[in-house]
């Protein structure tokens, strides 16, 4: 409010200066009366025009710019005519006698007021434009900071959620058993767990890894599950060799696989299959994880916690250029696809 009234006073002061300059010019070309009379009439016109325009703009502050402009111009013209009368009176002249010989002055004043109206409007809008731009910069800044904050948060969550204790302890129990019953299998499982842990633990600290690294980690993860679930799990990974070097933010595909195993296949009595594939389509990297699991079942509310993280990360990393889509697999299961620009 204080800022607004300050601005109004500033503009009014500018208008007084402008009118004074005009009065000096008019007197110099010997138009109208002496300097003092011209000054009184001129300032009177300026003040009424200014007052009218501001009153109208204040009343119509929520209307469209076009309405504002038309109304402000009408107010200025009316104000100008009123200003002439008031000014003439204030200068101690007889209005009737004064204007009888020069009616054209009204037309002149109205034209002048329209011109100043345009000028005024221009000054106002450019001021508004500047404040709008400042506000926009501020908004962008807030948006960027919010995204950065989200990134840090989701990265933290990824870091915290990366090794599910249930997964770790069950796998360790398996290794312990296999060391007694099937040494080779046990060794392989230990190797896979090591590979999984190494990649998971190290890569979350990096901004990007490659698609190949992510796939290797998924391979290790699924190898472990294959031993644990036995015949209840089948899996296929199809990734063209030439795509493996592509950079990719870490932990984008892995949570899809984890979700499919944990909520789709592990709780399903007969188990099922999981297919991981990556395609390059029209400048887009499409990563698909398909399963034949349960997809949704009752009381499975934490389904897709990892997917919520992915969704937020995709938004932060690619804005609207990435997509996370779902399709139902037949006869059962889910197909989740992530598409990111290459």
């Amino acid at each position: 409010m204080v800022k607004q009234s300050q601005a109004v006073i500033k503009i009014y002061f500018t208008s007084v200066l402008l009118v004074t300059a005009m009065v000096v010019a008019i007197t110099a070309v010997d138009y109208g009366e002496d300097f003092v009379t011209n000054m009184i009439i001129g300032q009177s016109i300026g003040t009424t025009m200014f007052g009218g325009a501001f009153a109208v703009l204040y009343v119509l502050r929520r209307s469209s710019p076009f309405v504002q402009m038309a109304a402000a111009m009408a107010a200025m013209a009316t104000g100008a005519v009123m200003g002439i009368f008031l000014g003439t009176l204030a200068a101690g002249k007889n209005v009737h006698l004064f204007f009888e010989p020069r009616k054209e002055v009204f037309v002149e004043v109205i034209i002048l007021s329209i011109i100043t109206g345009f000028l005024f409007r221009y000054i106002l809008t450019s001021q508004k434009r500047i404040s709008d731009a400042l506000a926009r910069i501020q908004r962008e800044k807030i948006k960027r900071l919010t995204i950065e904050k989200q990134m840090v948060e989701t990265n933290l969550r990824v870091l915290q959620a990366q090794i599910e204790p249930h997964f770790l302890f069950n796998t360790l129990s398996n290794i312990l058993t296999l060391l007694e019953t099937d040494l080779d299998k046990g060794k392989h499982m230990l190797e896979d767990l090591t590979a999984y842990l190494r990649v998971t633990l190290s890569k979350t600290r990096k901004e990007t890894t490659t698609l190949g690294q992510e796939i290797d980690m998924i391979q290790a993860y699924l190898n472990i599950y294959k031993i644990r679930m036995g015949e209840r799990l089948d899996f296929t990974i199809q990734v063209p060799e030439y795509l493996r070097h592509l950079p990719l933010p870490p932990m984008l595909i892995q949570p899809l696989v984890e979700n499919a195993i944990e909520h789709g296949l592990e709780p399903k009595i007969e188990g099922g299959a999981i297919w991981v594939s990556v395609r390059n389509e029209k400048g887009c990297l499409a990563m698909e994880v398909k399963d034949s699991g349960l997809c949704f079942h009752k009381n499975n509310h934490d389904w897709g916690v990892g997917l919520t993280n992915i969704r937020n990360r995709l938004k932060a990393l690619y804005e609207d250029k990435a997509a996370l889509t779902f399709e139902e697999n037949t006869p059962s299961g889910l197909i989740v696809t992530i598409e990111v620009p290459v």
């Binding site: 934490d302 897709g304 997917l307 779902f326 139902e328």
Partner: peptide, 22 residues
């Protein structure tokens, strides 16, 4: 700790749509 629903499953003919609750 209670697990809250994260996605709502909606179905339109053949295709399904998962709406994130937020």
């Amino acid at each position: 700790p209670k697990e809250y629903l994260q996605w709502i499953r909606t179905q339109h003919r053949e295709s399904i749509h998962l709406v994130p609750v937020d």
